[in-house]
Nucleic acid binder design. Sequence first.
RNA 1: GCUCCUCUAGCUCAAUGGACAGAGCAGCAGCCUUCUAAGCUGUUGGUUGUGGGUUCGAGUCCCACGAGGGGCGCCA
Length: 596
Amino acid sequence: MFESEQQAIETQLRAFCAQNNLPTPELSWTPIPFAGKWGIATSLFQLAANDARAIQARTGRGVNVPQHAQAIAAQAAAFLGTPPGFASVEAVKGYLNFYFAPFEFAHRVIDQVLQDGKRYGAGDPKGQRVMVEFSQPNTHKAFHVGHLRSAILGDVLSRILEFAGYNVVRANYPGDMGLHVIKWLWNYAAYHRGERPATDVTQWMGGVYAEASRRLEENPELEAEVRALYARWDRREPEIVALWEETRQWSLDGFHEMYALLDIRFDRYYFNSQAEQPGKQVVEQLIQSGIAEDGRPNGEAVIVKIDEKLGLTKEKYRVAVILRSDNTALYSTEDLALAIQKFDDYPDLAKSIYVVDVRQSLHFQQVFKILEIAGYALATKCQHVPYEVVNLPGNVIMSSREGTVVLLEDLIREATTRALEVVRQKNPSLSEEQMQAVARAVGIGAIKYPMLSRESGKVVTFDWQTALDFNGQAAPYIQYAHVRCNSILRKAKAETVDASPTPAGEYALDAKEIQLIDLISRFPAEVQRAAAEYKPLQITNLAYELARAFNDFYDTCPVLKAEPIVRANRLLLVAAARQAIANGLNLLGIQSPEVM
RNA sequence: GCUCCUCUAGCUCAAUGGACAGAGCAGCAGCCUUCUAAGCUGUUGGUUGUGGGUUCGAGUCCCACGAGGGGCGCCA
């Protein structure tokens, strides 16, 4: 947010170095890391180390780098004086700290936030299109908490990338065909023909699937019926296709309901079943060009010996199987075609991102590498963004077959019920309708936040107690800070605040106010970083820090009862804080309630 | 055998190669006649798995080891 100040100082520092025969400095800027201090800082250790080497080479004399850094910093501070707009400069422990003139800079930040509103923190358009594929639910199965991480992570990455300035295509890739679907169809046709799901569609679909698995486990001889059905599907018998199409739609309808509840949307659906034939064509092409080896004549599969093709001596990409010996498609068959399909549909894609479970890392490395070997330039634009799984306590993996699952419907119901109890108790004056709305916002937020607030490479362990704990570092804490902002502004008749952003008179800002403004000013840079590194964690951290700083401010700085000048300024600050918190929550796909 | 990931306070997790490793939860002690206590304050808690190395500087990068987890030619 203060790039122009940084650049001005850097120009001065380069002049200083040139004048003093020092190496050209490469500076990186950080906020001054001490509570209540506001400004920008840079260390001079790198510069000092470079100069120390030069002195060593020239004179053979060793130089103590930290001392040298501090000496240079002190000289530089004297050379620079206090740059325009700053309150002071200090050289300490090899760092140069530039302190902002708080009131002036505070109002630059606040004015910017209030002017930009919902767009505060958004990046300039980058003119690049990015596709994010996520969620990939299996039709004819239940949707459980383990499936939630991709959906939430992918949605939030999409939001962040969009806000950062990219054109984002949100893609879903449902698994609508495969052995699980055939098993389901078999069970349905044999024991549930004519039944239709009424409510909780996805749960019902999952029930029929679980029943199928159970039946087959108890009576393995029934497998023959399933195989027979698979053969009928392979022949595309109209009756089977029609049944598949109808029941598949039930699942998709169920998914739509859940996505709506979770406020997740898609621009484009790719279906597993549609990638099958194109995938086989890609495989043929790979065989023709000598990249793949066709083992089918000998009853073996079609494979690509990737390491061999690359001349690698150590195992890295290994051998990929890209088509079964019986000519049926594998995931890799379909992913080869899908990767290409995406660029056919959107030739200007700068990046094609796959938000998929870390266990498929090798699979994607193989697919992308095979395409690269085959000469597809798009291969290097494909990137797998992996995440770790969601487990149950005791390192138990959620599995539909094992029955160790927490269903999404149950989790949402439980979380909103619990939130409703809390809001009923905390704020009984609200209308029933308001309470319901708050409970939904809080319940959904409480589900999403834990999935986003840890490194995606770390396993999330789901347990009810933590999931339903609405205190501390969690979404409701941030939402509550937003509500408090809103409450103050409502009482102050917020509409007059936004209309007159220029306050008359100046006063000494409290340390809590400075802390809050400092954090608000960091938002745009954090958005860019989150987008560049695919890390929603940056946003959860900042949103939480903002809420904490606001609660701190709320506790020590009266607003409505303050003197007129202070009151006017603090109202603007509260409005800016509310906006920053709301924008942060919005990036996380979490609602900002007006009341709680 | 090859390979990827994880290891930080009792627990769950943060921390651009930089200044003093921070939060929450749990525990203990306080704060509602106040802009909503879903809040705030104080307090307890650390050889960042172990050993080397690189660097002016390492929780962060490199190597080895340990522990746990994932993946590896016809599962998805």
